[in-house]
Write a protein that binds this DNA or RNA. Structure first.
Lengths: 237, 237
DNA sequence: CGCCGAATTGATACTCATCAATCTTCGTGG
DNA sequence: CCACGAAGATTGATGAGTATCAATTCGGCG
């Protein structure tokens, strides 16, 4: 039965053919016929900010692709704190461990309002039999995951705190025509700390400093416009 | 043509059926017949300490499994330093990106004398057609990669330097019956630094401290026996 | 308006990086 | 077999960068 709680809202079956991120997901090069045939096995679900999408250890029976919003994957670190090991953005896929019969390896939470599509593993398997391009895509998704994780190691959690904050902002920034440039949604300082391996106070001080120096400018709500060039300079160090 | 340089020595085709780590690798549950048929497409190669196994950007036409030794995967970090993003131990697989037609994403170097088996992608593909258990194993290998990368983020590069060193030692330790306990090969301080995101001086000071306090004891060459319980206490913090 | 969680700010102590100087180890050639 | 050289490892002194603890302040929201 589709979820129907305060934090998770079932939004019906998706129209994959109109999906804004289809070419990024698993069905990028599937023909319209096949799409239509399998659409009703797929659920579109919307999560409120902060809600839990799945927990580590849960039996994994479906894969998720992010349509809109952002998801953080949490892993307990050695000292008991929850560390964020990955950020998922629209087009990203998670829960692939379900494909190999493993339970989910992390806790997944919506960073803010987020829409995902839930694709049962059984659907993927059946599709793969007739459409080899799907298993191809699944393999690519694995590769993308590993690449993301490696980048995270080499860039997000390495170097001085100031550089790490800069890299995180560049990482989550997107073109924002309405503000004439690029914009990023500032995560809470706590989330920043959990991603960057710092304390929330340090994250706060650096955000304030960036604001003072004009590297970021408040736009609307938590949205800020960023000065990419300047941030990249800081990210270097 | 098989490599035949000072640092890489071709050792013939492997006898997969006798491989000490077969059950860990891609052919764990392949029958003897199939194994024998494909063995001669596989090369067994030995690398000297420090030699380069492949470079980032190289066309990936084969997958490697580690038979013995250890391999470090290097990625350039934002400040230009080479960071170690993963350690491969016997049974581990690397170069999977070749399966999706991507060039290798890292530079791979032997940490010390290391034996690998080189399996062409074409071989894997052909095998997968007749033996679904192989593609199953490939998928598992991907999953294992991601798990390793996530562990690295949550454990090896997080927390105080002392804890990180302790975790690294626990990570590379193996049972060593001849020393009555567990033993670990100490990497060079430079490699430690590149894994832990510290400086080599800090790594050195901590190793010395561990030795003074009996958490590790010199055994033979670079091998040290470890006091797992004590190291785990330190790793906590 | 008052409350609560998030964000900011300050003061202080501690960890770690940096720069520089030995000290060891080990392979090589005499 | 021994001396030598070079790379790796250790040690010390010092300062910059962060964590920590403790107040406030800010921003929504009932």
């Amino acid at each position: 039965m589709p979820p129907r709680t305060a934090s998770a809202l079932w939004c019906g079956h998706p129209k994959c053919s109109h999906c804004p991120v289809r070419e990024l997901g698993l069905f990028g090069d599937l023909d319209a016929d096949a799409l239509a045939r399998y659409e009703r096995e797929i659920d579109r679900i919307e999560y409120a900010a902060g809600s839990v999408i799945y927990r580590g250890g849960d039996a994994g029976d479906a894969i998720l692709t992010v349509r809109a919003g952002a998801i953080k994957l949490l892993a307990p670190s050695a000292d008991g704190q929850a560390r964020i090991v990955r950020l998922l953005r629209p087009g990203d896929v998670t829960g692939l461990e379900a494909m190999v019969g493993e339970p989910y390896g992390h806790e997944a939470q919506a960073l803010w309002r987020t829409q995902v599509c839930r694709i049962p593993v059984s659907t993927i398997r059946r599709l793969s039999e007739t459409a080899p391009e799907v298993s191809e895509r699944v393999m690519h998704a694995w590769h993308h995951l590993v690449t993301q994780a490696d980048d995270w190691i080499a860039h997000i959690v390495t170097g001085p705190a100031r550089s790490r904050v800069a890299r995180l902002l560049l990482h989550v920034a997107e073109p924002a025509p309405e503000f004439g440039g690029e914009a990023a949604v500032l995560p809470t300082r706590e989330d920043m700390a959990a991603m960057l391996s710092t304390t929330l106070e340090t994250a706060s001080r650096i955000v304030v400093e960036f604001r003072r120096n004009g590297l970021i400018k408040p736009a609307k709500g938590r949205l800020v416009t960023i000065d990419r060039a300047a941030l990249e300079t800081v990210a270097q160090a």
